[in-house]
Simulated scan of single mutants.
Amino acid sequence: MSSSDNHTLLRLEGVCARYGEASAIEDITLSATAGSVVAIIGANGAGKTTTLKVASGVLKPAGGDVWFDGQRVTGERTGILVRRGIAHCPEGRGVFPYMSVEENLLTGAFTVKDKAATRQRLEYIWDLFPRLKERQTQHAGTLSGGEQQMVAIGRALMSSPKLLLLDEPTIGLAPKIVQQVAELIRRIRDEGVSIVLVEQNAQMALDLADYAYVLEGGKVRLEGPAATLKTSSLVREAYLGI
């Protein structure tokens, strides 16, 4: 998908979601254009992770609609959405510690039936993450936090997604590694994968994003081009510490 093909790839319309009786997000409407990076920022508990879970089918919405690539996909199962082109890299990395790096990556290709395509995809991941190639036979649990994050992103990319949902990819990582993750996100976007980025590091998220949403109390409080939001007094005070 070329970045010039800028149709709306993902759209959430009036989405509400609950955990039991508790409302997590309310009337969320947001879009991601093909070829773009969209950031979702906000404090802990603002509803950022829940929004991604609804978009990837992990959580069924209590109301509203989800559209992907022109089709309504509200309530579709995760496996179906992966086949359609949505990959979700959840917070906390979730690598399988006793499986090798390569085995972890291959779990991301569960929807790909063509073995040659899977090998080709693996070569792409080795090219993207040379460090993982060096450690392909190593147990994923023995890797550093930054390397485990690479495994998690690589696993999500194994299904050749059109859209990558990234939840807190830099949490707990050293500043130098955060920089590497930012460069990676740019490269993935340049190769035609659209990205929705949920990130505690608001400065980094707004630097990377074309468009951004600020969530507060389960609702969209502000939205706009990322460059514009960086100059908003609310964003500067609450999220950039300026």
Rank of each mutant, 00 (worst) to 15 (best):
Gln179Ile: 01
Thr51Ala: 15
Leu240Thr: 04
Ser56Cys: 15
Leu173Gly: 13
Met204Arg: 01
Val198Pro: 08
Ala226Arg: 02
Arg72Asp: 07
Ala212Tyr: 08
Met1Lys: 00
Gly70Asn: 09
Leu166Gln: 10
Leu106Met: 09
Gly64Pro: 11
Met99Thr: 03
His88Leu: 02
Thr170Asp: 10
Tyr19Thr: 00
Thr228Gly: 00
Gly217Leu: 12
Met150Phe: 10
Ile25Ala: 02
Arg77His: 14
Ile171Tyr: 04
Asn201Met: 11
Leu163Asp: 12
Glu103Trp: 06
Arg187His: 11
Thr78Ser: 15
Leu128Pro: 03
Leu165Phe: 11
Gly94Gln: 15
Gly218Ala: 03
Gly92Phe: 08
Val193Trp: 08
Leu206Asp: 06
Glu216Val: 09
Met1Glu: 01
Val220Asn: 06
Ala62Ser: 15
Val198Trp: 09
Phe68Gln: 07
Ala156Ser: 15
Lys48Trp: 05
Ile86His: 08
Glu123Leu: 10
Gly47Asp: 05
Gly79Leu: 06
Arg131Glu: 14
Gln180Pro: 00
Arg187Thr: 15
Ile188Ser: 02
Leu157Gln: 03
Pro225Gly: 03
Gln136Arg: 15
Asp127His: 10
Arg135Glu: 07
Ile125Tyr: 05
Val66Pro: 14
Arg83Ala: 13
Thr111His: 12
Ala34Ser: 12
Ile125Pro: 13
Cys16Ser: 15
Leu105Phe: 05
Thr137Asp: 13
Gln71Arg: 14
Glu21Met: 09
Cys89Phe: 08
Gly92Trp: 13
Gly20Glu: 04
Leu106Ala: 04
Ala182Tyr: 02
Val15Thr: 01
Gly146Leu: 06
Ile28Pro: 07
Gly94Leu: 13
Ser2Met: 04
Met158Ser: 06
Val151Ser: 09
Ile171Cys: 01
Ala34Met: 09
Arg189Glu: 05
Asp5Gln: 01
Asp210Gly: 07
Leu143Trp: 10
Gly192Pro: 10
Ala152Tyr: 12
Glu134Ser: 11
Cys16Pro: 00
Leu208Ala: 06
Ala202Thr: 12
Ala87Trp: 03
Ala109Phe: 11
Glu91Leu: 00
Glu223Pro: 04
Asn201Lys: 10
Leu59Asn: 01
Gly64Gln: 11
Leu163Glu: 12
Glu183Phe: 00
Phe129Tyr: 13
Leu173Met: 14
Glu21Gln: 10
Leu157Thr: 06
Ala212Arg: 09
Thr111Leu: 12
Ile125Arg: 08
Ser56His: 01
Ala174Glu: 14
Ser56Pro: 04
Glu147Ser: 02
Val181His: 06
Lys230Arg: 15
Val66Thr: 15
Gly146Val: 11
Tyr19Glu: 05
Val151Trp: 12
Gln203Leu: 10
Arg11Val: 00
Gly79Trp: 13
Leu222Tyr: 03
Arg236Tyr: 08
Thr78Phe: 03
Glu216Phe: 03
Gly47Trp: 01
Leu166Phe: 11
Gln149Tyr: 07
Leu240Ser: 10
Asp69Glu: 13
Glu102Asn: 02
Leu206Phe: 03
Glu26Lys: 10
Leu122Trp: 02
